[in-house]
Write a protein that binds this DNA or RNA. Structure first.
Lengths: 141, 141
DNA sequence: CTTATATCGTTGCAAATGCAACAATGTCAA
DNA sequence: TTGACATTGTTGCATTTGCAACGATATAAG
């Protein structure tokens, strides 16, 4: 009989951790603003970088381009962002926040940052840098 | 303009990390044994604990009971485990590995453990305990 | 016993997902 | 310029997913 224990297996623990953290965070912005994870990522990336194509988000934010496309369509339907064809390269769609989108984001961001602070406190203040370094070490190819 | 950067946001990084690690691992057992994550978790938990109900896996392994049920059915169809009604409580289904299931697991487990070792090496040997402690600190209640 | 309530595993169904195909557009070499 | 090939974003489609409802069984109260 092998001593293998799934609950102590690092890939499993990471999956549980991610699921737990994402779930808690999604409960915060989901309940108040009716936003799902895909939409949150699109909005958050738009805050960071002015006008952006679907491809950019697809690459930077690790989402299938169809998922980005559909999330953007939903956000457009709600008046939170605009989609317009890029003038220089007509294949590209330039996504940009509307004033309403900016307002919504201005409400969500403080909650998200507060949540992140809560995580860091759980780690113990000194250890969060090590934790981030560990994450990057694993992702480093 | 807010300085928020999604790619430095801890919940996002955890999601990326989990996705990356799970994907790499799934590529190992998926390609060779045609097993998905749900099936892997069911098999792995059966190795750890002899005969087990769907509910047990549902609770211990963080999977929807319908997902457990369907994964178990697929594994049963492939002859990797058996489902039989528990004699004491006929509501329960006792899942147990067949010899073929055991053989398969005996092939996968070393690969999984090797993969986990690779992760730990990336962290730098001394730091893996801190990393595990950090994960538990966040998951704590 | 009878009745009400809880638990277990499966299934139906609507929604979400990933992937491939596609039209539109761009690039580059000849 | 033309023609071959690449890229972008959307959509169709088959599969997967989560949730609720269900039948079957168990438990507890009266």
């Amino acid at each position: 009989m092998n001593a293998f224990d799934l609950t102590r297996f690092l890939p499993y623990q990471l999956a549980i951790l991610s699921q737990h953290v994402s779930g808690e965070l999604a409960a915060i912005y989901g309940a108040r603003f009716d936003i799902d994870v895909s939409e949150w990522r699109v909005l958050a990336h738009l805050n960071h970088a002015g006008a952006v194509s679907v491809r950019d988000i697809h690459k930077v934010v690790n989402m299938e381009k169809s998922k980005v496309s559909r999330a953007a369509s939903r956000l457009e339907a709600r008046g939170l962002l605009t989609k317009k064809t890029d003038a220089k390269d007509k294949r590209l769609v330039a996504l940009a926040l509307t004033p309403q989108g900016n307002d919504l984001l201005a409400q969500i961001l403080p909650l998200a940052q507060e949540f992140e602070l809560g995580l860091i406190e759980k780690l113990g203040k000194g250890r969060s840098d090590d934790f981030r370094a560990a994450i990057q070490a694993i992702l480093k190819e």
